[in-house]
Design a protein around this nucleic acid. Structure first.
Lengths: 208, 208
DNA sequence: CGATACATTGAACAAATTCAAAGCTGGTGG
DNA sequence: CCACCAGCTTTGAATTTGTTCAATGTATCG
């Protein structure tokens, strides 16, 4: 809610300018934020929920390229480059966005050196996150892939549907299901009434 | 060679400052640019050749996270964040780098708004490239993966060794070899004395 | 002429996908 | 309150695809 939590280098006056060129919007699972090909007239900043970035291939299959967790801009690179979004973005869960008018935002960045610095660091962070996401993608072993996801995103593991998790991991729901069964059989995940996680065993699987 | 080709927003004076805090270095295939864990005392800018970004997993296997083509910084995000490099970088071919003293460079960026703007756009570009690289990673079908690589990097396809290409694509050399044979059999690649590419068929494979 | 590094091939194997079917679960309407 | 439907999840069997490992080819460079 509080813009100042996300944009730390800004003065009250600057924050209130940002508020004047933006709105907070509630979104539901499945809502589209933008489609591939849209003009970046608006710039989106995720403050709550999970967003999937994807491309639709020629045969109609969606390929998940990334998923975004708050706080984060969505598709900021297209905004900066002034190009149409080359990707689509969809809510994977309910959530909230700040929707900026791109024109006002870019004008603001242009004028404000502190904010430029903040943006540079923000972009560097994003690049780092993308590398670590790539690292996860490169893992071909489904068991490790799932274990990693649970370790890094315990909250999402419990809140997202299995189909969504599978899509994030680029595996089939069937594989996810079978993998979870294995993890349970091996005691990496304990299922009572409630599913629990055995962090030690998880850790040691990832360390071999 | 000419710094002004890479850093377009800068004046002659600024360029000569950059020259004063950097050196151009020749590199050979296999040379390490930095290791995971190194301090980013120097900042590297690739002007010729191909660089592989990778992590070494606990069991000793290298996982290629990205490959970098000139002109581009290498591991700039760690420099900006002031963290140790979380990845390693290695030359996949002979090439040339500009090696900056990080301190001088960051001081310069800090002072120069035009350059900050240039850096922001540069970082946005990098993020975009990383997405498209992810898209390639996501392709699980080796035939399409190789076809895409040939289409997008015809030059690299002819200049890099097959082991290097395989490592970039995260497949085994054996799979690459078999895949190329298939592509030849199917006429997507024509081999006379010289290997040629049938762009139409390549294109239509990617379009299904 | 080796020698060394790179490339290809074959066979066995491992792992995920596909497709079809069956199980669950939560919500709706009678 | 029960019956039924829709959406998700799980299971099984067959199949596909890439990997592994070992062996054989091939080329280039002293």
């Amino acid at each position: 809610m509080e813009y100042s939590n996300f944009f730390k280098s800004l003065t009250d006056k600057e924050i209130s300018y940002l508020k004047s060129i933006s709105k907070i919007k509630e979104k539901k699972e499945g809502d589209i934020i933008f489609w591939e090909g849209d003009d970046p007239k608006y710039t989106f900043f995720l403050i709550e929920g999970v967003v999937k970035i994807y491309k639709t291939s020629n045969n109609g299959n969606d390929i998940t390229l990334n998923y975004i967790l708050p706080p984060s801009f969505i598709g900021e690179f297209a905004v900066i480059k002034g190009m149409k979004y080359p990707i689509s973005a969809e809510m994977e869960s309910n959530g909230r966005l700040i929707v900026f008018e791109t024109k006002g935002l870019t004008k603001f960045i242009e004028k404000n050196k502190n904010f430029m610095r903040e943006i540079i660091i923000y972009l560097a962070n994003k690049i780092e996150k993308n590398y670590s996401y790539c690292e996860d993608l490169m893992e071909k072993n489904a068991k490790k892939k799932v274990a990693k996801f649970i370790k890094e995103h315990e909250d999402l593991f419990f809140s997202l549907k299995h189909t969504k998790i599978a899509s994030i991991l680029n595996i089939t729901p069937e594989t996810l299901s079978r993998t979870l069964r294995e993890l349970k059989n091996e005691g990496l995940i304990v299922e009572r009434k409630i599913v629990k996680i055995n962090k030690n065993k998880l850790e040691s699987l990832l360390n071999d």
